[in-house]
Design a protein around this nucleic acid. Structure first.
Lengths: 336, 336
DNA sequence: TTGTACGCGTTATCAT
DNA sequence: ATGATAACGCGTACAA
């Protein structure tokens, strides 16, 4: 691998000149510049980034932490992060934390080792110590989640109002007993969606029923299991709103396995609009989040913080959209 | 951020001793070691990894290249890669190439900049120039794909025999007209699966029908579109084998949208056994690949190459499994 | 415009 | 057992 010295020797100039050709070409006379460029090409020279990093004391790496990249929701957010970061000359290191304290600690250590220039966190727990510890060391941006009263920049939708919106859609279809399969209560956005659900009930004059609220873990299996639990209630729900699409798909499966029809007997709604949502049968009513854009925007925000640019709007809220499909209605006029 | 000098000063030793405490503790007397450790703790010192990298001329980074991490198949392979790499003290840089020449080139450049110690490639095109260019610079391992006659270490299943197996399963259910929705013909494993499909037909005395073979791109939508095309044939198939689960799910959707029943009228089989495969209705018959293990194993292999250890078996073939579910049969005895 | 020389924070060699 | 010092490859202040 050719170094800057090899290029300098071949072009018969000093290493300083070679370096300048790359960083400040205008400070080098066209003639020598030409010479140097030729030498670079001849040797296929690339500056060693490890040396650049050390010298500049920055790595051009962003760490993207998420609970699990296998989750299709996160993986699309991640693509937004990845693509925008690459455009800006940054590399992305992914970390799946599995919401595991040990692993989280490893990533904090990475920051202590000056490993990255910033962090994007795509989920947040009620327990904010982890976030605080990260933010204390490097610029941090929250994607997907907004923590009320928190100082950290964030990009998200309004989970509460979106949940309210989709719950009201179910109520408008005539449902009086609407169940909710929530996400883990330790996660902030789970709480926001649950809150939105409850608000919709109250605003519609319905009373909540403890038995109709179950806490899942965002997996297909938990949706399946909890729907079964709901269906075996003596007074089962006629509609189920799951806090994400995977739990909703699991719930639909449980319902159909029992020979019950969706949406005629039980309506099902999800959240996120993952790709497969429109390809299950019946297709799934859900809230569409601009996942890719959330990822992109969080990188934009983070880069501003890294470059000490002022943020005119630290907490960005993007638009969501209610997507009505066949899992909640047979009325073709409602379905997009 | 404290440096080695700060620690040395506080512990009243030289930086060499501090460094030794970390790398070769046995060469330092217990007494001074104790002193140094205390100073480290007091300053919360971590060696700067950029400096370590430069000095050691290695980055402890592995690049994992895949067409698109959004694909649930790759994302689980990726988790295997990520977890095993972390155990070994390596970090993972993900690159989604989208099979785009421009992006591929960027990653080659990363290697030229000494950015990574090795590369794991999770898909391979018939055009081997990209692979060759990568392998020329850094140790490379292929995950998911085996290139016949290639010198590169790889971890995969036997795609050909697996495709043969699942096609035969369909034929055993009495189907005479079995269609295949293939993956892009430029991808090696698509060809392998197509070959297996054809072999099964021939071995069963069935003749192939050009019209029953359609080329998709592994997306839900392409499965949907191509199934529609197959169904509108004057002599439509009674079974469809798609080269991955997503196309199979898209195909099922197309069939069901037409009011046709799966599996009674048309049977559908996929490939990969992604999570959602058992949660669609009817549940999807497919080939289970040990995705997570493929990822792990590819890291093991790569680390051996990086450390110049001999490989007793450069091309590793893992076991796959036929998972029969309700999309191909109503016989409860067959379904696991 | 170009070159010299120092420093970024480590690790490792060679003395002591 | 410990310390001084030379790299690792690059960027830049300063000198020429």
């Amino acid at each position: 691998m050719a170094t800057i010295h090899d290029v300098a020797k071949l072009a018969k100039v000093s290493i300083a000149t070679v370096s300048r050709v790359l960083s400040h070409p205008e400070k080098v006379s066209p003639k020598t510049r030409q010479l140097v460029v030729e030498a670079m090409n001849q040797l296929d020279y690339r500056p060693n980034s490890m040396a650049q990093n050390l010298r500049r004391l920055q790595s051009n790496i962003i760490i993207a932490l998420m609970p699990d990249i296998k989750n299709p929701f996160f993986s699309e957010v991640f693509r937004g992060i990845e693509d925008r970061a690459r455009e800006a000359g940054f590399k992305i290191l992914v970390g799946s934390t599995d919401r595991n304290k040990e692993k989280e600690k490893e990533y904090i250590n990475l920051l202590k080792e000056s490993w990255a220039d910033g962090v994007i966190l795509t989920t947040a727990e009620i327990d904010r110590r982890f976030i605080d510890e990260l933010a204390q060391r490097r610029p941090l941006v929250l994607a997907c989640e907004y923590i009320p009263g928190s100082p950290y920049p964030s990009v998200s939708i309004d989970n509460e109002s979106a949940a309210r919106k989709i719950t009201k859609h179910l109520i408008l279809q005539g449902h009086k007993r609407v169940a909710h399969i929530a996400g883990p209560s330790s996660i902030i956005l789970s709480v926001a969606r649950l809150t939105g659900y409850l608000q919709a009930l109250h605003q519609s004059g319905l009373i909540e029923d403890e038995a109709l609220i179950q806490e899942g873990d965002f997996t297909l299996q938990s949706g399946y299991d909890l729907a079964n639990k709901l269906l075996s209630l003596k007074n089962p729900p006629t509609a189920i709103f799951a806090a994400n699409d995977e739990m909703a798909i699991g719930a639909m499966k449980a319902i159909q396995d029992k020979g019950i029809r969706v949406p005629e007997d039980v309506a099902v709604a999800g959240f996120d609009d993952i790709n497969v949502a429109s390809f299950v049968t019946p297709s799934l009513t859900t809230i569409r989040q601009p996942r890719y854009k959330i990822g992109q925007t969080s990188v934009d925000l983070l880069l501003k913080v890294i470059n000490h640019e002022p943020l005119d709007q630290p907490q960005i809220v993007l638009e969501d959209e209610l997507i009505v499909r066949h899992s909640t209605t047979l009325n073709p006029e409602l379905v997009m």
